[in-house]
Design a binder for these strands. Structure first.
Lengths: 365, 365
DNA sequence: TTGAAAGCGTTACCAA
DNA sequence: TTGGTAACGCTTTCAA
């Protein structure tokens, strides 16, 4: 592959001039520009080597998006897709590329600084990064912070682990969750389950205590659970009638798998508040498969209003996913450009009532 | 920010040694390793500068994914998300990052090599790229080819515009489409519409001719249309009873907008073959809004079997989206590693019959 | 308007 | 096992 120097030599000009031609920068006579362009074409020189240019410039024109777990898993949630769409839209407008960075979960016995299992994260050529919904104890966070990159957090720890965030973007998770629970209460439900993917980093299934729930590893989960509890408290109901269950993962399958436990109990719940739409859709599917009508026998509420929810007629708490991506991207780009940044935007959440919730059926027994 | 050289100086060793410590490479005594690690920590050195390392190494550990149009638009299609998931899964496994590269559509009057509006594409620091479903006349293609990067095409031109593809990944679009059309035929439909997003690069709406259809800008669209026509031909039916309509864009809204024309004609169609699920979902929604039952008054078939389709009970042609991503990524990584590559994998497509198709209702008049 | 030259921060080869 | 030392390919003053 020809280099800029080759072109300079062949065209009989300096490398500085060739660089100027290719960067649109500066004053170059039309004659020289033409000669350089031609020579470049003849040599098959496609433009400055990006790695070299990045090194020299100190900027790359690419921002990273750090996604929880591995990329494949993260993109499986349509909510993540919507968020990315927002980030991408802003990136487009500012001619900034997007690199997806996987943040593996905490693993015990991390070796030296070299082979900690975060190679992509530590070596990615990016100007800054948006940290999307990663677990608070992920080793990715310190690794990123150590790099000294400008960082924007989305859906992340309230106290943010001391990371020097440029901005922390949040959603009214607690208020949205409260509205969801309030909705079920006002329909007449009094025995309801809360279904989370998992409370701790290690997946677990089955019923959990509220004490565990309050210590959930994810701040978003904590907030949502707190919101559900708020509604219960406001109604003067005991938390014993608001059971917390873990599905083990954030997927429709996991939601389906957890459904039996909800319905089979001695006194089954009449409603389920799920912390994500994918979980909720799994519950709906499993309930119907067991001939438990939704919402007749079981009301189901999701969270996120991901694209799937509307299709499925799922009552859910909508958060502006796309806008969240836009806000985060704009904050990061502003910081990179040295512009002032809103350090703590909070986006609204709102209940969207669809067909998956209704009054509880009166007990036939 | 401290550099590797600073660390070397402070620790009283050579830069080579520090480099070795941080790359796990080579033999470094435990004592030296410890001293270097400590010094680095003390200086706040987070590891080698990725841009510099990339320049020196000649590799980055990142592959690009070129998406049609702009990223925001592309990610709006859940099918793209599923594909990306596949690519990401392979990337994870091989510790390779993913950069999303936007490929703007053709625009007239492109200026010099510098400011052609493809900055991200021309400057992205990647080792190779997967070109996903981009238009055949996109300026992105020559720009990429000029860079001399190893390239894998997905859903791309049959003749591939002479680009030196490492591999071209295809799906049995034609066969899948034929099966879809055959399905409607066997249900008794004889007057059917084909709904595409658009045939040419410039968006257009309304009915089109088969002559236009055969010249569609996208090879995938051409293949699918050919498949529909195959079924018609095999049944001995005239193409005049298989109307081609353009929706103008690949979105549910566009599909909905095109629905009126399908139903309002003097002799309305009884079935619609859509080239994507999002279009199909738009048609279903719009038909129902006009009190045309699906499938009673109108049978609707999608394409892709994106995650939305199952939720909505849409009959569609399934293609292995995730696997497509995996195959493409593996091909590219193999090429980068100098391993042998299957240059022309073809993935299967299969009809998935759900609730959106049924026999045509007998005309009441 | 053009050129000379000094790095940007690494890695990898070869020698010690 | 460690160090010296060339590159890697470019951008950017500063001078001419």
């Amino acid at each position: 592959m020809a280099t800029l120097r080759d072109v300079a030599a062949a065209a009989g000009v300096s490398t500085a001039t060739v660089s100027n031609v290719f960067n649109g920068t500066g004053r170059v006579s039309e004659a020289v520009r033409a000669r350089v362009t031609e020579t470049a074409a003849a040599l098959g020189f496609a433009g400055p080597n990006p790695a070299a240019a990045s090194l020299r410039r100190g900027r790359v024109g690419i921002i990273g998006i750090v996604l929880a777990e591995n990329l494949g898993y993260a993109l499986g949630d349509p909510a993540a897709g919507a968020f990315l769409t927002g980030v991408a839209a802003v990136g487009d407008a500012e001619d900034v590329g997007l690199t997806l960075l996987p943040a593996p979960p905490a693993s015990p016995g991390a070796p030296g600084p070299a082979a900690r299992g975060l190679p992509t994260l530590e070596r990615a050529v990016v100007d800054g990064a948006i940290v999307y919904s990663i677990e608070e104890d992920s080793p990715a966070l310190p690794a990123l912070v150590a790099r000294g990159l400008p960082l924007v957090a989305v859906d992340s720890p309230r106290d943010a682990t001391g990371a020097p965030w440029v901005a922390v973007v949040r959603v009214q998770d607690r208020g949205g969750a409260q509205a969801a629970a309030q909705h079920l209460l006002s329909l007449g439900h009094r025995r309801v389950a809360v279904l989370v993917d998992r409370l701790a980093t290690a997946p677990a299934r089955g019923r959990a205590t509220w004490a565990d729930a309050r210590r959930a590893a994810s701040s978003v989960i904590r907030e949502r659970l707190a919101g559900y509890a708020d509604a219960w408290r406001a109604a003067g109901l005991p938390l014993s009638s608001l059971e917390v269950h873990q599905a083990g993962a954030n997927s429709a399958e996991a939601g389906a798998g957890a459904t039996a436990a909800l319905l089979a109990a001695p006194s089954p719940v009449t409603g389920v508040l799920c912390v994500s739409d994918v979980l909720a859709l799994g519950v709906v599917r499993a309930a119907q498969a067991r001939s438990a009508e939704v919402p007749g026998a079981l009301s189901v509420v999701g969270f996120d209003d991901s694209p799937l929810a509307a299709e499925a007629g799922l009552t859910t708490v909508a958060q502006p996913l796309r806008e969240k991506g836009e806000v985060a991207a704009r904050a990061l780009l502003a910081a990179l450009a040295g512009r002032p940044v809103d350090a703590a935007p909070v986006l609204p959440a709102r209940l969207v009532v669809r067909a998956s919730t209704g009054p509880p059926r009166v007990n036939r027994c």
